[in-house]
Amino acid sequence: MMELLTPVTGFPLFGVLITIAAFYAGQKLYLKSNRHPVLQPVVIGMVVVVGTVIVLQVPYETYYQSSYLLHAMLGPATVALAIPLFQNARRIRSLLLPILLTVLVGGTFTVLLAVGILWLLGADTATLLSMPTKSITTPIAMIVTEQIGGIPALSAMFVLLTGAIGAMIGIPMMNRMGIQDDGVKGFTMGLTAHALGTARALEESKECGAFSALAMSLTGVLTAVLLPLIMQWIHQGL
């Protein structure tokens, strides 16, 4: 049986084929579920790919090499994130300074807290190094995690979990806290739950969505620039 599949799994575009098919299936299922945050196309796509690779007994390395074409597009697509950042920054220019300060202080707080808890509970160094990017958008998170020596796949999982849970509990929590301003709500969603939080914020109002998108972009870019610098500085200090 497995011999019959050798021409399929040995096909140079095998990885590209199953990844696009899995992602397409994920998109269909996501729309059918009324955009449930846990059923993100990337999550379903990943689960389907992992399942297929296990069933067909293909080593991960073989799959990765035959899907590299898609992985390589991550670079230019990440550069393209400058476009929504520019569009949002222009829209809310007057609040740029308080926004920057909150992103810096709030972002540092959540990272230190998460890494501190992991450290106290005796988690592996690899787990610790994959955690600091948990609240930024997945592409930047994976690229930065690779840079600082964590496990990109693990960081993607942390990001998706944070985004999905944040998108579910964020708005109800802030309503309970008596936060009424849509700008403040959106800003918190973007800072804590990146793209998934922003999708949820857009359901509240346009203003909520715009603040969320801006907070998400700034948190992502600042983390991506500062985190590797801080890590290098720590390494040199040790």
Binding site: P41, G45, Y64, M142, P152, A153
Partner: peptide, 24 residues
Amino acid sequence: VLLPLLPLFLIPASAGIIEHGPLL
């Protein structure tokens, strides 16, 4: 064109989680 496809580009590296079962 590219930004809506970003999640697709993330799958090859995300599937690497397959190799980290014991750590999880």
